[in-house]
């Protein structure tokens, strides 16, 4: 598999809600192992595009291919199983589960045991459960969250909750990780740390990252390629330097 192969391919993707065309004929791609960014002014359709990629919405027109097969008609949990994981703009952890349980739940697509195994509680079931508990701790350890493992998820600080969301998404073993405004509400030093973290995650887990972000410092700092949306249309694509110099992008952000 070459480094430049397209992992996610959007071709003429359009979605209309009644009379409103939220995303209009967007063609874009994310390559294997790439750190890609998706930017645009408020209401440009970035989160809608995320919801299309993850199967929350189905496109009115156009097609989305992931790892070489179409995603049309597939529900979000199925796409997660194929290797698309995401975090949410407004944190959506499971509040009644502990930190470690939040991660363990995300192993779901890779579980060997079935529901009735948990009733019989045989040796193989117990071994798998122990192994999963171990793996959850390992993942939490990478992000320095293991000391909170038994705490309720919502008792974590805001920054830790954001990081736990990333850990939880990683537990699904994705090939593509979608991050929806990961830097929202973070202070400058937390943002620096987040940038390091995203790069680290990409290298360590060998996955592609697509990032929606308002913070230009973060986007320009880590993305290798950036797609720009305005009013649901793609207006530019290129490296950070190209995007910074693009007159259409400057016009979209600063006005004509």
């Amino acid at each position: 598999m070459s480094a430049s192969a397209s992992l996610l391919q959007l071709t003429g993707v359009t979605i209309r809600f009644g009379g409103l065309t939220a995303v209009s004929s967007v063609t874009a791609d994310v390559r294997e192992g790439e750190l890609a960014g998706l930017i645009g002014p408020n209401g440009a359709g970035k989160t809608t595009l995320f919801n299309l990629i993850t199967g929350v919405y189905q496109p009115t027109d156009g097609r989305i291919d992931f790892a070489g097969s179409g995603t049309a008609g597939r529900r979000p949990f199925h796409l997660t199983g194929l290797g698309i994981a995401r975090t949410f703009q407004n944190i959506r952890l499971f509040p009644s589960l502990s930190v470690a349980e939040n991660v363990r739940v995300a192993f779901h697509r890779h579980l060997r045991h079935r529901a009735w195994h948990s009733i019989l509680r045989g040796r193989a079931f117990l071994a798998e459960e122990a192994e999963l508990a171990e793996r959850a701790l390992e993942l939490l350890g990478i992000f320095n969250l293991e000391r909170f493992r038994d705490a309720p998820a919502r008792s974590l600080s805001y920054g830790d909750q954001r990081r736990l969301e990333i850990v939880r998404a990683l537990a699904t073993r994705p090939r593509l990780l979608l991050l929806d405004e990961p830097a929202a509400g973070m202070n400058p030093s937390e943002k620096d740390e987040l940038m390091r973290l995203i790069r680290f995650v990409r290298d360590r887990f060998g996955l592609a990252v697509l990032l929606v972000e308002h913070d230009m410092k973060v986007v320009m700092g880590i993305c290798e390629r950036i797609h720009v949306l305005e009013y649901g249309r793609k207006i530019a694509e290129g490296s950070p330097a190209e995007i910074r110099a693009d007159p259409k992008v400057i016009a979209a952000y600063l006005g004509d």
Binding site: R75, P76, F77, T80, A85, R86, F88, R92
Partner: peptide
């Protein structure tokens, strides 16, 4: 807790 998040984590 959260059906949208549960689906996103691969739960049917």
């Amino acid at each position: 807790d959260d059906e949208v998040a549960a689906e996103a984590m691969g739960l049917d």
